[in-house]
Design a protein around this nucleic acid. Structure first.
Length: 475
DNA sequence: TCTGGGGTCCTTATACGA
DNA sequence: TCTGTCGTATAAGGACCC
């Protein structure tokens, strides 16, 4: 998906369309998750500190991510991908590999291209958002193609053209080459993909180690036989928090670690898992990060056990000077159904469930302090003015813009935070219900066809690729 | 004004049992 | 019984990805 979080917000809030939108953490230590293309023009990009983004584009709309909302769109898109093939490998909420050959939907360039054109149209019709598709004979190439296709495009890498296409490009386009590896290679005089191939496999292994060296050399030779894997099991579960100001009080640090342990176990149990290795993560005031871990005799999903282990691990860490981040994780996972055999379980589980009710009634709608009920960017409903979203709140007032995905940009009104006519609401679908399916409501039909037919037709050529065809969709 | 959160994989060092 | 070695676990850190 193109600028996924930002595009989803623009689709849901007509007044933000065509404007710079930045989604990310809004606290003093927040970073950018996604910037709309309008914001990217000013140099804003993901992972940039929010403070820097605000300096670059003071007038952009700044929003916190709404993962539940994005997840529902993602599921819709993944459903479309699974209609093409049972072999779908999601990489994140907004990206996935699809093995078209395994699905029987495509066997040559022409059929693959047609499938991609239809997919992009379906994504647009179903979600109102644009996605980009890369078509190629391997995962690596499909991914590179999809990057080039963004935004709102389709790129095919034809078999036989790979080496020539990759050769002159920077090493950084290869997946797995980040800043550190890029620097490493540059110091060795290697700047392009072609130069990796020329350096030879032995030299790469010498420079980067066995796994990375062999892997990169293969990529540079455009050789990639990794299959598309539909189900990948989770290897670890973790939670972490960065604090707005460093914590110096040792007692407070201990309390935070307990809270994180609770949250981590809740997630672990939610996934039906238990684990053997407990990991504590501490980022200190100077951004130095250290981890401490402990492996138990057997897997656990017991809050008390994880709390105690985390507390022991904390004992071995010097936190003088303050900590900016704490995290607790569990790895060495197993299905926790087995653990039921041991369990002291039932009572504690009830206890935890109870606590869950108290602490986190619903993911996106924290209850208490009244001021915090009106989260910037979240949807609300007013008895008289209808559906809208919170533009800001403070000083006992909340400002709401009244508009819906299919309305014109709406008007802004301000209310008391206590106004009984105002309530938290669920996000509305981006496309009128029924519109994305066949057999449309007659009154919506023309509108729906208009958006579906905006995808250009294509002129397929022959497709001589063999082996598992891969495609990534990046809506 | 610095630098999120949730993961995966790899490397290196060390411990330990056969 | 002592010593080396091999394979596997464990622990810590780092790079990378979205």
């Amino acid at each position: 998906m193109d600028a996924f979080f930002a595009s989803a917000e623009q689709a849901s809030k007509p007044s933000l369309r065509g404007k710079a939108v930045v989604v990310g953490g809004l606290g003093p230590r927040g970073v950018v998750a996604t910037a709309s293309y309008e914001a990217r023009v000013f140099g804003v990009h993901s992972a940039m500190p929010m403070a820097q983004a605000r300096r670059l584009v003071p007038n952009a709309a700044y929003l916190v991510p709404r993962f539940g909302f994005y997840r529902s769109i993602s599921e819709q898109v993944m459903g479309l991908l699974r209609a093409l093939s049972p072999l779908v490998e999601p990489l994140s909420l907004d990206e996935a590999f699809v093995d078209l050959e395994a699905g029987g939907t495509a066997w040559d360039e022409e059929s693959a291209r047609l499938a991609a054109v239809k997919l992009r149209a379906d994504i647009r019709a179903g979600t109102g958002l644009t996605g980009s598709v890369g078509l190629a004979a391997s995962k690596m190439l499909a991914k590179i193609a999809s990057e080039q296709a963004k935004p709102d495009g389709l790129v095919v890498i034809e078999p036989g053209t790979e080496r020539a296409l990759l050769g002159p490009k920077s090493v950084r386009i290869l997946p797995g080459v980040g800043p550190a590896t890029g620097d490493h290679l540059r110091r060795a005089g290697i700047h392009t993909v072609e130069e990796i191939a020329e350096a030879g496999e032995d030299e790469l292994v010498r420079l980067l180690g066995k796994a990375h060296g062999h892997g990169l050399y293969a990529m540079a030779m455009a050789y990639d036989e990794r299959p598309v894997v539909a189900e990948r099991e989770t290897k670890s579960v973790s939670v972490e928090d960065t604090y707005d100001v460093d914590i110096h009080d040792r007692v407070r640090v201990g309390l935070e670690v307990q809270r994180l342990a609770d949250r981590c176990v809740r997630r672990l149990r939610g996934a039906g898992l238990s684990g053997r290795t407990i990991v504590l993560k501490v980022r200190r005031y100077d951004f130095s990060t250290l981890t401490r871990s402990e492996t138990l005799r057997g897997p656990t999903d017991d809050v008390a056990v994880v709390r105690e282990a985390a507390a022991r691990l904390l004992d071995s860490v010097d936190t003088t000077g303050g900590v900016r981040l704490l995290g607790v994780g569990v790895s060495g996972l197993a299905d926790y159904t087995q653990e039921d055999l041991f369990a002291q379980a039932a009572g504690e589980r009830a206890e935890l469930a109870e606590e869950e009710q108290r602490v986190e009634p619903a993911e996106d709608a924290p209850v208490v302090p009244v001021e915090r009920r009106w989260v910037s960017g979240h949807d609300v409903r007013h008895d008289e003015f209808g559906h809208g979203w919170v533009q800001g709140s403070g000083l006992g007032r909340v400002t709401v813009r009244f508009e819906t995905p299919d309305s014109e940009p709406g008007r802004v009104r301000t209310f008391s935070v206590e106004d009984p006519a105002l309530a938290v609401a669920e996000p509305l679908p981006l496309v009128p219900v029924g519109c994305e399916a066949a057999g449309l409501r007659p009154d919506l039909e023309s509108h729906c066809q208009a958006s579906a037919s905006s995808v250009p037709a294509s002129l397929p050529k022959s497709w001589s690729g063999k082996g598992g065809g891969g495609a990534t969709s990046r809506p």
